[in-house]
Amino acid sequence: MRKVDLKTGKTEIIFSVFLLLFAIEPLFAGMPMVDYAVWGLIVLCIVLLIVSLARNLAKDARGFLSRYTSRSVFSVVDIVISIIGVAVSYAVESNLNAFWIFILVLTVISYFLPTPKGAKTE
């Protein structure tokens, strides 16, 4: 599992924040101003994620896939966030139960898959 620093791990950090905001958003559905703020932050994360992915692709096209297929600390964080998403969707009886279970299964499977030979695992 490789360590994440702020310069190279921006995309992973932004994705985890996006996932967390999307997981806890149903809790704020009854408070319109807070709900709008959370949705604004979700949109901001999506824009930052797209910009960060585009910059990383333009900077290093060869190492792009190996950078995002290697495991990092945020692999475990994403699993925990997915569990939070499942719990919140069941607690507020949201229609996203199947979505969060699917995301949880994907993150667990991706965590246990072996890393490619070209990926850095420091």
Rank of each mutant, 00 (worst) to 15 (best):
L65D: 09
R67S: 13
S70R: 15
R71M: 08
R71I: 04
S72K: 00
S72G: 12
F74C: 03
S75F: 10
V76E: 06
V77T: 08
V77Q: 07
V77I: 13
I79L: 05
I81S: 13
I81D: 10
S82Q: 04
I84P: 01
G85M: 01
V86P: 07
V86T: 00
A87R: 03
V88E: 06
V88D: 01
Y90D: 03
Y90M: 06
A91M: 07
A91V: 00
V92G: 05
V92H: 02
E93W: 10
E93P: 03
S94G: 10
S94M: 07
S94R: 02
N95S: 13
L96F: 13
L96T: 12
L96Y: 08
N97M: 13
N97S: 10
I101D: 02
F102G: 14
F102S: 12
F102Q: 06
V105T: 11
T107R: 09
T107V: 11
T107N: 14
T107F: 06
V108M: 08
V108E: 06
S110C: 07
Y111P: 01
Y111N: 06
F112E: 01
F112W: 14
L113M: 15
L113F: 11
L113Q: 14
L113Y: 04
P114M: 05
K117Q: 15
K120M: 06
